[in-house]
Design a protein around this nucleic acid. Structure first.
Lengths: 118, 118
DNA sequence: TCGTTGTATCGATGTTGGTCGATGCAACCT
DNA sequence: AGGTTGCATCGACCAACATCGATACAACGA
């Protein structure tokens, strides 16, 4: 995706030298997928409702009526959160329960931390 | 945006009671705007290049040739990062310099932290 | 077994977003 | 002043996405 990874061509002598890109293209694609999953208000609230729950589990039957959206729409957003590795789910009898996966959240926090401390 | 904020109607007696939504709709919209800005590999790398820089400033003339994209495209991504409050810029003579705004990154990290610790 | 309920998937649709060429503007140089 | 370079904005195009109704599937109850 990048044109020149090692040999950076500067216009002339405008600024200092370039340190190697701190985030390669591959890592950026993976991270962006997760951030994109958080880039929607509905999904943010869904994740917040799931993660902030005592016991760590929430039934879909509680999540769906909390929004002014159709049921397939909520199901779609939950699927995106799942594909991003932010939550997982399990069917137990009639209902499906969702819980958060802290490892993925930690990964995002790690990126933000290194960016802040730079 | 939400149908019922206080009175949650549950199907019957499937699960426990609902704690108040930990992230209201308004906060979710604001946070999602910032996360959305990070939901693109190019912007993620741009921010990383800017934030991880000694001195904290990077000239646009260094950022543009680091990608296989047209100059207006990079300018567009930088604009989105600006509008999200993640970076700011200043023109000094011929060149424009960008730097990161840690406060916004901290805000995101705060959300992730509360979600992890729930 | 049949109807009912909870959830996911499918297909369609309107909107948003990434990308680019063309253009405009600002600052420098001669 | 005129030409050049760095960067932003504009307008257009195509892909991706959010949303919904219809439908399918799974589990339960009668």
């Amino acid at each position: 995706m990048s044109k020149q990874e090692l040999e950076i061509v500067k216009p002339d002598g405008c600024c200092g030298t370039v340190s190697p890109a701190p985030l390669d293209a591959e890592q950026a694609v993976e991270l962006a997928t997760v951030f994109k999953a958080l880039g929607d208000p509905v999904r943010l609230r869904l994740l917040s409702m799931i993660a902030s729950r005592e016991g760590g589990e929430v039934c879909v039957c509680e999540l769906t009526p909390a929004f002014d959206l159709a049921q397939p729409t909520i199901s779609h957003h939950l699927k995106l959160l799942r594909q991003a590795g932010l939550v997982d789910c399990e069917r137990r009898g009639t209902w499906v329960y969702y819980w958060a996966l802290p490892a993925t959240l930690d990964r995002l926090a790690g990126f933000l931390r290194t960016s802040v401390n730079a």
